[in-house]
Amino acid sequence: MTVESDLTIAGDILAVQHLLQPAREHPATVAEFAGLARAIAADRAQWAPLIRYDAATRWYHRLRTGPGYEVWLLSWVPGQGSGLHDHGPSSGVLTVLEGELTERSRATSRSLTAGSQRVFAPGYAHEVVNDSLDGAVSLHIYFPGLTEMPMHDADGDSAHDTHGTRRAQCAPAPAPGGDVVRA
């Protein structure tokens, strides 16, 4: 079925200033954050020299900050994983830059290859693991910036110790591997 529109533009649309939105200095929508992740992924010269692989612990580097958001670069050796966690009040965009990662939640398990993106809402619990035989690199954007990472047990419930909910605190200081680069 073809739908025709009787909408036409008469005159110079650029002269209608109230219809034009100024270009945003920083992302504000899910699509803009996903676009920022794709733009960073495409600029390999910006992030590739920073990558380090650490067999003892997951390596991470805060690549950039902006008004209310953070961009993190992570590397994963074979077998490394995040554990089942959520991101507290933060939303996020996960983009695989190199290699392959597996994302598991209570409901699904999916393979994420280079170029794959996952957008998640606050409170979404998942685990990211490098199940492959090669290293992997991922980019993570959090809005607002990551302040906590509550860990969950295998049932997806917040894991508790004798002192209450166990949370991995995310300090605002620079991450191991380098200085904070402000956007």
Rank of each mutant, 00 (worst) to 15 (best):
S5K: 03
D6S: 15
L7T: 03
I9P: 06
G11A: 04
D12P: 12
D12N: 14
V16A: 11
H18A: 15
H18F: 15
L20H: 10
L20N: 08
A23S: 12
R24Y: 00
R24D: 11
R24Q: 09
P27E: 05
P27M: 04
F33L: 14
A37K: 04
A37C: 03
A39E: 11
A42Q: 04
Q46K: 14
W47R: 11
P49H: 00
I51H: 07
Y53Q: 05
D54R: 05
D54G: 10
A56N: 11
T57A: 15
R58E: 02
W59V: 07
H61D: 04
R62T: 00
R62N: 02
R64S: 15
P67E: 15
P67M: 11
V71G: 08
L74N: 07
S75I: 02
S75Y: 05
V77C: 14
P78W: 01
Q80M: 01
D86T: 01
S90D: 05
G99Q: 00
G99E: 00
E100K: 09
L101K: 00
L101F: 06
T102K: 06
R104Q: 08
R106V: 13
R106G: 15
A107W: 07
A107F: 11
S111H: 01
T113E: 12
A114P: 08
A114R: 00
G115M: 03
S116L: 07
F120S: 07
F120K: 03
A121I: 09
A121V: 15
A121F: 05
G123P: 08
Y124C: 10
V128K: 00
V129K: 03
N130P: 07
L133T: 13
L133R: 15
L133C: 09
G135A: 14
A136G: 12
S138V: 02
L139G: 09
H140N: 06
I141V: 15
Y142S: 06
P144V: 06
P144D: 03
P144N: 04
G145P: 11
L146R: 03
L146W: 00
T147G: 08
T147N: 03
P150Q: 02
M151F: 07
H152G: 05
D153G: 10
A154C: 10
A154E: 13
G156D: 01
T162H: 14
R166K: 12
A171F: 06
A173V: 14
P174R: 03
A175C: 13
G177H: 02
G178H: 00
D179K: 12
V180N: 10
V180S: 06
